[in-house]
Design a binder for these strands. Structure first.
Lengths: 207, 207
DNA sequence: TAGATTGTTAATCGATTAACAATC
DNA sequence: TAGATTGTTAATCGATTAACAATC
């Protein structure tokens, strides 16, 4: 949509958005860059610099309209464009993601889950079916899905990834700790939970 | 332990570690920086530069000993130092994290879960009890725990955070999409899942 | 007006990449 | 030896912070 916003800025955009939702709940109509910055512990000029990318002006001496800023952020982050996805693996993590309301709000539409456990197959999670993994290839094609969210045990991660690539999945959001091998046309995004913890532990948690 | 390793490098360290585990499984004893770099799609001089921080030498013309490199990484990442933590919120995500084997391996020891749902209280997840949230303050003090992993619904996040801070928790690993307000002595690390997706979507997923 | 805030440029800082001598 | 790889420095690139004129 817009011409390239750096990843780091996209990350901050979601935090700004979350703060704006709070302000709306509290009925506050104006917000300033120092207010946002203080809330996040960052520099206020960074907030304003990020906003340049939104091409949306504030009001000098006043700040920004909470409502307009929120809508501009949503447009920029592409909330409008729905993206369909499958969840692969119906363990606790898969189920947690299947029930995560926020996804729909942010434009990510989970159509179904897949698992190889006969006890789970054909169950329903909210309005989402759990299919046997053997049905994947068929459904990827029929429903034209190209995003998979991978939550299987680490030991099966590569095997299942090969299946996904073969079925025609183009984007894998990887919640397993495995470093996946994929053909060049497939993109992987690693949600490395352990790495996040270690970063946290390393930065903040002294003995 | 070591004198400050940048967050980004810690993140890469975990990826290097994961690759080394694979090499060990396959019985390969040597690995070179170009091999690691190719696997991760990064620059090989970056790999070597990161290794400078480990103060562990490789062998020119040969590469690095997989086994030694793995052990050095583990020492540097502080695997040895066990850290106790509570999970707050026994929904699917809380349960997923409670059963996440990797935590223990990386030195994070989950002692128990907390919830306010009477149906969940007193249940057991593996070897971990679910306590009523009212017992939190008591147990934080008795067991000397200062890390909480927050997986409650967004609507309750701030309220529960206030409880945690009051009980004496010093580190909150926040899996909710809320931007938490905490007193200055409490550190928060945000696991912003939606932000990760949007970064992914923004970078890679074109319409 | 006086004062607070924006918008933006310049300065600083840190991270990545390129290059290459040392070397086994 | 010849060739591949390390270790490290220098060059580049990008992100953050400082500073301040414009302005409502």
């Amino acid at each position: 949509m817009n011409n390239k916003i750096p990843e780091k800025v996209v990350g901050r955009f979601t935090l700004y958005h979350s703060i704006l939702l709070e302000y709306i709940e509290e009925g506050i109509e104006l917000i300033s860059s120092p207010q946002i910055a203080a809330r996040l512990g960052i520099d206020d000029s960074q907030v304003r610099k990020d906003f340049i990318l939104l091409k949306k002006s504030g009001m000098r001496r006043i700040g920004y309209s909470v409502k307009e800023l929120k809508e501009t952020l949503e447009k920029s982050l592409g909330f409008a464009d729905k993206k369909d996805a499958f969840i692969i693996g119906a363990g606790y993590l898969g189920l947690a993601l299947a029930k995560y309301d926020n996804f729909m709000y942010y434009g990510l539409n989970i159509l179904a889950l897949f698992d190889n456990d006969p006890l789970k197959v054909d169950m329903q999670i909210g309005d989402k079916m759990i299919f046997h993994i053997s049905k994947l290839s068929n459904l990827v094609n029929r429903l034209n899905v190209d995003i998979a969210i991978l939550t299987v045990p680490k030991a099966h991660a590569q095997k299942v990834t090969d299946l996904l690539a073969e079925a025609g999945i183009k984007y894998i959001w990887n919640f397993t700790p495995a470093v996946l091998k994929v053909p060049p046309e497939v993109k992987v995004c690693n949600e490395n939970i352990m790495a996040s913890f270690l970063r946290f532990a390393y930065k903040d948690i002294q003995q």
